[in-house]
Amino acid sequence: MTKADIVEHIFEKVGFSKKDVTEVVELVFETIKETAEGGDNVKISGFGNFMVRQKRARRGRNPQTGADLTITARKVLTFKPSQLLKEAVNTKK
């Protein structure tokens, strides 16, 4: 499934113009990215949480050469699926 399929579903359900729906869908994903970029978590009830986590610098190793290196401190994005989503994917169709 891609963004185009999502737009198609919305179009079938509510029938707004595809161009307008596409704009809103783009804005929804852009707003999620903007919010996380600002360091905030995005919680979509029933679906899951997009969480920004601060990772400290740590020692690592280049697995190919074996050379020691420092992995710099960084922020990473993780997705924690909601209980509902976890249950949904485990139900038998």
Binding site: M1, T2, K3, D5, I6, H9, I10, K13, V14, F16, V21, V24, V25, V28, F29, I32, K33, I44, G46, F47, F79, L85, A88, V89, T91, K93
Partner: peptide
């Protein structure tokens, strides 16, 4: 209200897709 319906439909259709075992690819997001 329209935006609310659209947002709900986005996550509903994503959930349905995952339930069916389909993969979802959103360019730029993941």
């Amino acid at each position: 209200r329209d935006v609310e319906i659209i947002v709900d439909t986005i996550f509903d259709s994503m959930t349905n897709s995952l339930v069916k075992g389909d993969k979802i690819e959103i360019r730029g997001l993941g």
